[in-house]
C-alpha cells in the first residue's frame, strides 16, 4: 500500500514543479503591469520605481521565481498587490468557503447517486428507469449557470424560501440550521452534473455486475435482489465509481467558478477572477498552483483508494 503510494509520488511532484514554473512565467507575459495599476497618473518615475522595488518586481526573473518558491516552502505566500492583505489570509477565507461548498456538493451528489442508482437497479422498473434516465440526461445537458439561475428564480425570488446567495452571516458553525439553508442551493447546483454522471456510471456498473456468473449462482441459491445488489454488486462496482468521482472532484473546482459567481459565494473561484483582472501576481500564482495541486492530489488519492478497494492493482501494480 505504502510502497504503491511512494511509487506514484515523484511524478506528482514533477507535475507540480513544472506547473509552478509555467504559471510564474505565463503570468509575467500577460499584458498589463501591476505597477501601472497601483501608481497614479502623475506618479513620478521615482515613485513608480519605488513601488516596483516594493513589490520586488525589479529583481531578475530567476531570483523572483526562486524567492517565491522559497516563500512557498516556508508557507509565506506574500502580500497581495491589489486586493489587499496577506495572500495566506485571502486564501484561507476563500478556501474555507470553497471547500465547504465543494464538500457539501460532493455529499449531495454521492448520496443522491447512491440512492437513485440503487433504487433504479433494485426496482428495475421500466418507467422508473426511463424517468431517472431522462432526469439524468437533463442533469448532464443543463449548463450549471442555467440550473443555478433557475434555482435562484424559483427558490429565492418567486418563493422566497432560501437565500439567493452569499455565505451565512455568522459563520458556518454558529447556526448550523441557517448555514444549511445558505448552502442548499449552490451546493445542489454544483452537485447536479456530478450526480448525473456518477449515478449513470454506477447504475451501469451495478447492472454489469448483476450479469456476472457469481451473481447468477447467488440468485440460484435464493438470495434476494436487494441483498444481491447491496451486498455483492455494490462493493464490486465501487472502485471504478470512485475513479469517476475523483475525476469529477477536479472539475468541481472549475464548476465552482460559475456557481460562486451566480450565488455570490466568496470562494476561490471568485478570488481568482478578481486576482487575474487586477494582475495580482502573488494571489494568482498561488491559486493556479493550488488548483493544479488539488487535481494532482485527488488523482493520487483516487488511485490509492482504488488500489485499496481493488487488491489486484495493489499487488500487481499493473498501471
Amino acid at each position: 500500500m505504502l510502497s504503491y503510494l511512494v511509487r506514484r509520488i515523484p511524478s506528482a511532484v514533477g507535475v507540480l514543479f513544472a506547473a509552478s514554473f509555467l504559471i510564474f512565467l505565463m503570468l509575467r507575459l500577460i499584458p498589463g503591469d501591476p505597477v501601472d495599476a497601483l501608481a497614479g497618473q502623475d506618479a513620478t518615475q521615482e515613485s513608480r520605481d519605488a513601488i516596483r522595488a516594493d513589490l520586488g518586481l525589479d529583481k531578475p526573473f530567476w531570483s523572483q521565481y526562486v524567492s517565491w518558491l522559497g516563500g512557498l516552502f516556508r508557507l509565506d505566500l506574500g502580500q497581495s498587490y491589489r486586493i489587499g492583505g496577506d495572500v495566506g489570509d485571502l486564501l484561507r477565507n476563500g478556501a474555507l468557503n470553497t471547500v465547504v461548498l465543494t464538500v457539501a456538493a460532493l455529499l449531495i451528489a454521492l448520496v443522491l447517486a447512491l440512492v437513485t442508482s440503487l433504487v433504479a437497479v433494485i426496482r428495475d422498473s421500466r418507467w422508473l428507469n426511463a424517468a431517472l434516465n431522462a432526469v439524468n440526461t437533463i442533469g448532464l445537458a443543463l449548463p450549471t449557470f442555467a440550473s443555478g439561475l433557475l434555482l435562484v428564480l424559483v427558490f429565492a425570488v418567486v418563493f422566497p424560501l432560501l437565500p439567493s446567495g452569499g455565505t451565512p452571516p455568522e459563520g458556518y458553525l454558529a447556526r448550523p440550521d441557517i448555514s444549511v439553508q445558505y448552502l442548499l442551493l449552490p451546493a445542489f447546483c454544483l452537485a447536479l452534473p456530478v450526480w448525473a454522471g456518477l449515478s449513470r456510471f454506477l447504475t451501469e456498473a451495478l447492472r454489469s455486475q448483476l450479469r456476472q456468473p457469481y451473481i447468477t449462482t447467488a440468485r440460484a441459491a435464493g438470495v434476494s435482489r436487494t441483498r444481491l445488489v447491496v451486498r455483492h454488486a455494490l462493493p464490486n462496482a465501487l472502485p471504478s465509481a470512485v475513479t469517476v468521482l475523483g475525476i469529477q472532484v477536479g472539475t468541481l473546482l472549475g464548476g465552482a467558478v460559475l456557481v460562486e459567481q451566480i450565488f455570490t459565494w466568496p470562494g476561490l473561484g471568485s478570488l481568482i477572477e478578481l486576482a487575474i483582472s487586477g494582475r495580482d501576481y502573488p494571489v494568482v500564482q498561488v491559486l493556479l498552483l493550488l488548483s493544479v495541486a488539488v487535481f494532482v492530489v485527488t488523482q493520487l488519492l483516487t488511485d490509492v483508494l482504488q488500489a485499496w478497494l481493488d487488491p489486484r492493482i495493489r499487488i500487481g501494480g499493473a498501471r
Partner: peptide
C-alpha cells in the same frame, strides 16, 4: 442581479 435577488429575498 444577485443584489436585486438578495433584497427581494430579504438579505
Amino acid at each position: 442581479q444577485a443584489q436585486a435577488a438578495g433584497i427581494r429575498s430579504g438579505q
